[in-house]
Structure formats: C-alpha cells, structure tokens
Design a protein around this nucleic acid. Structure first.
Length: 563
RNA sequence: UGGGGCAUGGUGCAACGGCAGCACACCAGACUUUGGAUCUGUGGAUCUUGGUUCGAAUCCAGGUGCCCCAGCCA
C-alpha cells in the first residue's frame, strides 16, 4: 500500500487519507459512490464519482457502488439502471461491488434493537408536527418528548409492532436518545425509523418501516468496510451523528470527509429543478442535449474524457464555488479537436453558380480528415458547377476586415478553387440573397494560386447535386443568469430561461459522406463547430447536435463593434 | 454569547514560515488553405486590524463577509 497518491493531483482529501495511512488508522483505502436511485445523474454527480473512484484508485484501493435506497416512495429501478449506465460511460467500474442499503435492512433492524436495549433509542408517539415543535429552533433548545423515558421492554414491543405493520404511516417513530439541547439540531433525538407502508423496488412489501439516512449510511459504510466516506458539505453537520451511531454500536468506524459540491455558471444542478423542467416540458427529457445530466451531455456530444478532465481541472476543496462553463467547453474542444473528423457542412445555404465551370462536369477533390491526426487519412469530395455556401460567408457590402465573399472579391473554397464573385440575385421582398454568380480560376485547383497571389479568406462549401439534406440543432446555455440560484425577489429560476437555447435548422446541406454517420459520432464542421450525430438520426433524416461552437474571432470583432 | 464551515487575480485550484504559481477567461501580437488549432506576450490576487518572526498567504488574537443546518428527504 502506498502512502501517497499515485494518480491525479493531490488535494486536501488525499492528504488526509495519506495521514490516516501514515498514522496507521487504516491500512487500506475503500470508498463508495452512494447515489439515491430517484433521478438521473448530472455533472455534479460526476464530481462525486471522480472523487470517489479516483481517490480509491490513487491509493490502489477500491470503490463500490452503493444505492442509498432507504426511501421507497421516491425510488425506482428505472433510475438504478440508468445510474449504472452513466457511471460506466464515464469510465468507472465497481466490479462485483454493487451494493444496496436495502440489502442491510435486517442488520439495520438488529442495530436498532441493540440501540433500544442499550437505552439509546425509544419509540416516540409524537406526530410529525409535534416533533418539529419539540425540536426547538436554531437559537432555542428543544424539549424532550413525553415518550422519551419509556422502558426498554415497552420500546422493544412497540418497535416490533411497528415492524409488524400494526400502525399507520406517521403514527410512531424510533428516535435516538441524544440531547434535545444540542446546538447541532441533528443531535436533538433524530428519527431513526419511520413507518412507510410503501412497496420498495427491491424488498417489495417485506418492510413497512424504513431507516432514515442517518441510521443507514454510516452503518452501511461500516458493513462494507469503507474506510473513507466522502460526501457533500451538506453532511458536515451530520458527521457527529454518523460518528455517534458507529461508536454506540461499537462497529468498524469509517471516516467521513466532506467536500464542496460543483456549481456551474448558467446551469442549474438540482435534481428537483431538473425534474421540474422535464415534467413541465421545458426540455424534451432528461437526455435533452441542453440538460447538465450526463445523458444530456453525452447526447450533446461531450465526451467522457472531457468531463473527467473537467472534474480533475476544477479540483477539490471545501470552498463554495461557481465554475465558469467556458472551462468545460474548452476541455470539450480540446478533446474533440484531437479526435473529431473534419467535414464540410453548410448550415444556412445559399447557392453559388460557377458560370465558367463546365456544365455536368464533376471533379473529385482530396480533403484531409483531421489535420491534428495524419493517420485519420483523407477522403474524396465531389466538386461541380453549382455549390452551396453559408449565407454568413457572403456580404453585399463587406465591412472592413471581412475576408469572405463579396461582389468583386476573391475567396478560396476549401480544398477547391479560388473563385471571384461577379453578381448576385436578391429577393427584394425578403432582402435575402438567393443566388451568387462567380467565376472560378482553373489554375487554382486545390486552392493554390500559382501566381502567388494572396487570398485571405477560405470558406467551406458543398456540391449542390451531391449534398445530403440534414437537420442541425444549435444549442446555447439554458439560463440567462450566471447563477440561476440567485434570482430576484418574486422570481424563480424559470423566469431566467434562455428563449434561444435551441435553434433547429431543418435545411442544412452536408457533404455526402455524412449520410451514413453513426449515431453518437463526433465531427467538426469546419469553421463552425463540433457536432454529434443525434441518437434519433437516420440515413433518411440525419440529425446533428451542435456540441460546442468553434471559437470565432470574426464574431468577436463584429460583436465588439455592435456595442 | 445556537451549531458547523469557508475566505488567494474575473473564475477555479496551488504555494504547508523563505521571490505568490498553474489552468480557464480577458487583452495584444505571430502564424494560418478552418478568422479553428498552435505559438508568444501584457494586465490583474493573499477579506481586515493587530501580534509573533530576520522573514507571514501560511502561526496567534480580534473583527468583517459569505455558505449550510429547525424533513418521519438523501
């Protein structure tokens, strides 16, 4: 066993673990990722996953998957399957260690009995409202329940009858007997068990009492032999209780360490809010490419490698943070730049006619698949008299520093010829240019000018006769507020939805080879951005999702001028 | 006089008593058959006050600010 991390950067958690090892407190490292199967995983969970699995790996230890399934009314197998799939997609594996808190219900029940016998737990008849009243407030101590002093025998009898189903939901609870005056509210006789006549996705109708998180988590960790239980800052206040149960029970005592959760600009990472958007139809589902869920990001075209790099780069600390989404986008580009095949695609087509190019003639031009990776090879591109280019690449009146096509101007067609604009046709009603007439220079095949003349601009194109039709979906941030948690008085996060988060372009023209692009595939549309083939894409109706646009310095120049 | 936690460029993370560094963002330039990529460069930070020390982001004391906790959710 090594005493210092061998994988990834160090952080305060790894330092603490290294100290534990050095001090002999533990002689191995075991962690766990403990999701509740009540929703889909998002990028915030990815942080927890990378920390849990990555920390174990750094110390040559192991990490398990354990579902925290102690609340049957919120949980479902749909989610347990989806969660496993998403963790695997991220690239982590728990081998045969797929655990469930519900597997420990018998042992947890026995622990509860033990607590009662020790006089450390009692059955309370107070209602939920009364318990809240007795709990006191943040600044005032609580008071003890009149049922707190029940004898062991009576508690045993009542608890057994709770388990047997004699009482309705909410009629009684099992509570730990700790300290109703504690400054830490979690220690004011926390509820250990509640009555819930609900069917559990794994244990069915076997139980009608279920343990609370605080009475299940630490003991589950202990049973599994977890050494380091890494969790959210939210559980910091629960650590004394985590420790207390373990100490009372006298069982193996893991160490809980808390870290700050991830927050992302222009993004909401709350299962409840995400669910609200799904349920109200604001997005198409949990896998909508605009969603910060792992499935949404995957569908959008983000790679697991980029997501992992992002989590590594962001680091681990106890400070509340708000990470700029641009960092994630940078890492997505960095990864895709190395692997995505380059293609030519016209998103907003306008026809270009090469008046001096022979009618019916078709040439085959060679194009490089990925300049960052010579082994990706080349492909053939058909070239003909009629082409499409993007509306954006033509200006009737070109502004300064605009290097693309304009009346009288020359531009290079990528891998093709240098062409010059002679005239254009405009629909006076809409103001839209419908046709551009150009001449091509036959001496410049491949884009090279033998006379050495400089041509500043290079634009992408497709052959009109050969191009395939496709639908392209452009995405932008879901919210207009940098931190959607910080809304103004009387507003909710829904008041800050970005109305332009999705733009569907139904009439795009792409190079012919893209007809058989496999769903999930990554491409770079040159000069435009990275795109992924949507899961619902077919050869008859290809659909591409914009993963992230390329950095566009011209857009920056123009944007700055328009201010 | 509730309890717990956190303060380093715009953002995030380092520096563990010895020249405050890295990434992203930003700005400027070079290069360019993707206005992509790549390369170079500029600017910008230790919450505050006092103390210890030859020397403090780091140690000590006080102050200030921000976050979390009053589910029979996790």
């Amino acid at each position: 066993m090594t005493e210092s991390p061998t994988f990834g950067a160090t952080n305060f958690i790894r330092e603490a673990i290294a100290e534990d090892l050095a001090a002999g407190r533990f002689n191995r490292v075991q962690t766990r990722f403990p999701p509740e199967p009540n929703g889909y995983l998002h990028i915030g969970h990815a942080k927890a996953i990378v920390i849990d699995f990555g920390t174990a790996e750094a110390f040559n230890g192991i990490c398990s998957l354990r579902y925290d399934d102690t609340n049957p009314v919120k949980e479902d197998v749909e989610f347990v399957d989806a969660i496993k799939e998403d963790i695997h997609w991220l690239g982590f594996d728990w081998q045969d260690r797929e655990f469930y808190a519900s597997d420990y219900f018998d042992r947890l029940y026995a622990f509860a009995l033990q607590m009662i016998r020790m006089g450390k737990a009692y059955v309370d008849d107070l209602s939920a409202d009364e318990i809240r009243e007795y709990r006191g407030t943040l600044t005032e101590p609580g008071k003890e329940s009149p049922y707190r002093s029940r004898g062991v025998a009576e508690n045993l009898d009542l608890f057994e009858r709770m388990r047997a189903g004699e009482f309705p939901d909410g009629a009684r609870t099992l509570r730990a007997k700790i300290d109703m005056t504690s400054g830490n509210i979690n220690l004011r006789d926390p509820v250990m068990y509640r009555i819930l006549h609900a069917r559990h996705h794994r244990t069915g109708d076997r139980w009608c009492i279920y343990p609370m998180y605080d009475f299940a988590h630490g003991q589950s960790d202990s049973i599994e032999g977890v050494t380091h239980s890494l969790c959210d800052l939210a559980y910091e206040d629960h650590r004394p209780l985590y420790d207390w149960f373990l100490d009372q029970l006298g069982i193996f005592h893991p160490r809980q360490i808390e870290f700050a959760r991830l927050n992302l600009t222009y993004t909401i990472l709350s299962k409840r809010y995400l669910k609200q958007m799904v349920d109200s139809g604001l997005v198409s589902g949990w896998d909508d490419p605009r969603m910060p869920t792992l499935r949404g990001m995957r569908r959008r075209g983000y790679t697991a490698r980029a997501v992992r790099n992002f989590i590594e780069t962001v680091g681990v600390a106890k400070k509340e943070n708000l990470i700029e989404i641009s960092l994630l986008e940078h890492l997505v580009r960095e990864d895709l730049n190395k692997v995505a095949l380059r293609v030519l695609g016209v998103l907003d087509p306008v026809k270009v006619i090469l008046d001096n190019y022979p009618e019916g003639k078709v040439e085959v031009l060679e194009a490089i698949n990925n300049p960052e990776d010579p082994s990706a090879g080349t492909r053939d591109l058909p070239f003909a008299r009629e082409l499409y280019i993007d509306q954006d690449d033509f200006r009737e009146e070109p502004p300064p520093k605009y290097f693309r096509l304009a009346p009288g101007r020359e531009v290079r067609l990528r891998y093709g010829y240098i062409i010059q604009c002679q005239s254009f046709v405009k629909d006076e009603r809409t103001g839209r240019v419908t046709e551009i007439h150009c001449t091509y220079d036959p001496e410049t095949r491949g884009g090279y000018a033998p006379d050495g003349r400089k041509v500043q601009g290079t634009i992408h194109w497709v052959s009109a006769a050969h191009a395939i039709d496709a639908e392209v979906r452009l995405y932008d941030r879901l919210f207009t507020l940098e931190d959607p948690r910080e809304v103004n008085e009387g507003k909710t996060f829904l008041d800050y939805l970005n109305p332009d988060s999705l733009k569907v372009l139904p009439n795009c023209k792409l190079e012919p080879g893209l007809r058989d692009a496999a769903p999930g595939g990554h491409y770079q549309f040159e000069r435009k951005g990275f795109f992924a083939v949507d899961w619902e894409s077919t050869p008859e109706h290809p659909i591409f999702n914009q993963t992230v646009p390329l950095r566009d310095s011209w857009a920056k120049i123009e944007g700055a001028k328009n201010k």
